[in-house]
Design a protein around this nucleic acid. Structure first.
Length: 561
RNA sequence: UGGCCUAUGGUGUAAUUGGCAACACUACUGGUUUUGGUCCAGUCAUUCUAGGUUCGAGUCCUAGUAGGCCAACCA
């Protein structure tokens, strides 16, 4: 009765089948295996939610494993950033692992393969090896070193390990099938010489295992039951299984690799190379710029972990090409923020309003509801006085009846305050309205219970008392790209689609309750959107980011007005 | 010229494995509302094509078509 039977995705179907056919629930184990060579982005978030979500669903442990087999690209800084991001998303890993933990075991197994005649040292250049690899339509040819003796292979491999050779002099290759229709089975490289210090093993090793020789074996060591990766690894599965065949013992669980389609977000690029260009060419301010699709960027922008998890859950997982519309992410961000974000009033594009029949030095503190979605959030006080700011867009000298805002001779309610009527306005020499003179209905105060206070007027505006307002920098973000698939155009560089107006900085005027806002605090600026306090913010100089606008039916309607 | 994967509304996923194509988002209607927000109700599909099997096909068979992946000492 409680929850409607949720339909399973294809990965869950596989697991359910395995459970029916002999796997026990406590054999289930997953892992999230990033290479620590960059920052995590929304695509990784989807994979994190898949693996950790499965862990939660089946009560199974999930390891965080760093695939750190290439010291040329990897750094501790990224390890730390990745841990912080996964943690922020709200997931707990059972155990923190590193492929580098397994270097010795991997090496020992490699010697075993040599002894069994399943691996050999090749002494050709990488160009020669590539040449012999053939093409997808033509078979490869065998290396002249393919039939070295076990003794010679062992001697050479140990020499490689001991640092007797320069980079590129030798590699260790698996001896499989140079004519396989799967290029990866044509004697793949297992080890290469790299005289580079590793962020964890330092100079202990100068040979490093390749991905294919490392990943499945690491899964095996950790007894991962289902090793999930993206579709481009599908051809690797045959090799994954071949390596496992060489060393799996009967009494241990044999990991399975299964592949799913990576999620693509519209109006976004995620490749490290492209994000780096955005950073280097100063299109954004850094990897955590709120416009970046990195987890750190989304965190800074004010997205909540819950909204990202809900998003990942909603889009699901499958095997076909996809481009998820970014509006779905926006929906989940709004959906969660609507429930948790306190409402406040802030004016970003001020127009002065003078209440001519309000006392010159008058001031009163009105009750304002913090969140109509959350009764427990209570009320706060908001100051009212004779001179206020409203948004410029909220006043027109004249307008048709679809304009539910302030116009000359018309009435409108000030949120939490009084009903006012626009009597006149003054303009500068260019004809721009710079001030509106209004009268207020003295008995119409919100919540006072008077007949006047219950009057219905079409339109409620947010506002702020000028003399009480605090000023703050507000950063208004828009999509970084104007095209849905910026990097899918053959003849155009993705940089051509950068939105020139993705950031606008304004000075906002806010109700004084915001004075003590702390970095990361989230608010709804009523009628405008959700905002949070940026990292750059200081107590005396607050900085807000617009996380996402409110849904705006009026903006669409406006053209027709 | 080879091998492998995929195809369901504008978008992303479902369909008890052969039994009324469902859910969410978007868009559009209307209602409620002291946020043009939220909330509520409604509208939007020849399941890539053509044949076939069947009482019955998104699902099975055959032949096409389209898209993707594979030739790093990257992961």
């Amino acid at each position: 009765m409680e929850d409607v039977e949720k339909s399973l995705n294809f990965i869950e179907h596989i697991i359910e089948d395995d459970l029916k056919n002999g796997y026990s629930n406590d054999e289930l184990r997953f892992r999230f295996p990033p290479e620590p060579n960059g920052y995590l982005h929304i695509g990784h978030a989807s994979s994190i939610c898949l693996n950790f979500g499965l862990g939660l669903r089946y009560g199974a442990p999930v390891n965080l494993r760093f695939d750190d087999t290439n010291p040329a690209k990897e750094e501790k800084e990224y390890v730390d950033a990745i841990k912080r991001d996964v943690d922020w998303l709200g997931y707990n890993w059972k155990s923190e692992r590193y492929a580098s933990d397994y270097f010795q075991q991997l090496y020992d197994w490699a010697e075993e393969l040599i002894v069994k005649g399943k691996a050999y040292v090749d002494s050709q250049t990488s160009e020669e090896i590539a040449e012999q690899k053939g093409t997808p339509t033509e078979p490869g040819t065998e290396s002249p070193y393919r039939h070295r003796s076990v003794e010679e292979n062992l001697t050479l491999f140990r020499g490689m390990k001991n640092g007797d050779f320069k980079e590129g002099e030798h590699v260790l290759r698996a001896k499989i099938d140079m004519e396989s229709s799967n290029m990866l089975m044509r004697d793949p490289v297992m080890y290469r010489i790299l005289h580079k210090p590793h962020h964890r093993t330092n100079t202990d090793w100068c040979i490093y295992p390749m991905y294919d020789w490392t990943h499945g074996e690491s899964d095996y060591i950790e007894q991962v039951s289902h090793s999930l990766c993206t579709l481009e690894f599908l051809p690797h599965r045959e090799l994954y299984n071949w390596f496992l065949d060489q060393l799996v013992s009967e009494d241990k669980l044999r990991p399975k690799q299964r592949e799913f389609a990576r999620r693509n977000l519209s109006h976004t690029v995620v490749s490290k190379r492209k994000l780096l260009r955005l950073v280097e060419e100063n299109v954004v301010t850094g990897w955590d710029d709120p416009r970046m699709p990195t987890i750190s960027g989304m965190r800074r922008k004010g997205y909540t972990p819950e909204s990202i998890r809900n998003f990942a859950e909603t889009i699901g997982i499958a095997k076909r090409e996809n481009v998820v519309d970014v509006s779905l992410l926006d929906f989940h961000v709004r959906d969660h923020l609507n429930k948790i974000a306190p409402r406040v009033m802030a004016v970003l594009n001020p127009l002065k309003v003078v209440i001519t029949n309000y006392p010159e030095d008058g001031e009163e503190w009105l009750d304002a509801e913090n969140n109509p979605e959350d009764q427990s959030s209570g009320f706060r006080k908001v100051p009212f006085s004779r001179e206020l700011y409203i948004e410029q867009e909220d006043f027109r000298e004249q307008a048709n009846r679809k304009f539910f805002r302030l116009k000359l001779g018309g009435e409108v309610r000030l949120k939490n305050g009084y009903i006012i009527k626009a009597e006149s306005c003054t303009k500068d020499e260019d004809g721009n309205v710079i001030e509106v003179q209004c009268s207020y209905d003295t008995k119409s105060k919100s919540g006072s219970g008077t007949e006047e206070s219950l009057r219905k007027v079409k339109g409620t505006l947010h506002w702020v008392s000028i003399k009480h307002a605090i000023q703050a920098e507000v950063r208004l973000y828009d999509r970084l790209f104007v095209d849905a698939t910026p990097d899918a155009h053959k003849d155009q560089d993705f940089m051509e689609f950068v939105n020139p107006d993705s950031l606008e900085k304004v000075t906002g005027f806010m109700e004084p309750s915001l004075k003590d806002a702390k970095i990361g605090d989230r608010f709804q600026f009523q009628r405008l959107g959700y905002f949070n306090v940026d990292l750059d913010s200081k107590p005396e100089a607050l900085v807000f980011n617009r996380t996402v606008t409110l849904r705006d039916t009026w903006a669409k309607l406006e053209q027709s007005c």
